[in-house]
């Protein structure tokens, strides 16, 4: 499956990271190799196999609807790079109107 530098640029955009032009080229080649390797799996006939979403045979793990103690305000804000009073502070990203 051919991977273009455009594909890499798009995936990078979705992850909000930027690559230098030479990185785009290198990652395109590497990703293509990885995908080709995985494509070997297509030789197998899996028509009788149900898609696997979880590998462990665990199901229906539920908890009671009970309120438990939340974190203290100090703990909540401990790693916040920017805050104002009890709020996390972030750059505004949508300009309404």
């Amino acid at each position: 499956m051919p991977i273009s530098t455009e594909d890499i640029r798009y995936v990078a955009f979705l992850a909000r990271i930027t690559f230098a032009p030479e990185e785009l080229k290198r990652f395109a080649t590497q990703l293509e190799t990885i995908l080709e390797y995985i494509e070997q799996l297509e030789e197998l006939d899996v028509s009788d196999v149900r898609p696997t979403t979880h590998v462990l045979p665990v199901k229906n793990v539920l908890r009671k609807d009970e309120k438990r103690e939340s974190l203290s305000s100090e703990a909540v804000m401990k790693n916040a790079p920017s805050k104002q009073n009890a709020f996390f502070k972030v750059p505004r990203i949508i300009q309404d109107k």
Partner: peptide, 11 residues
């Protein structure tokens, strides 16, 4: 959204 227009507060 804060009045200063540059930042937002998150709860």
């Amino acid at each position: 959204h804060m009045a200063d227009g540059d930042n937002s507060l998150v709860d």
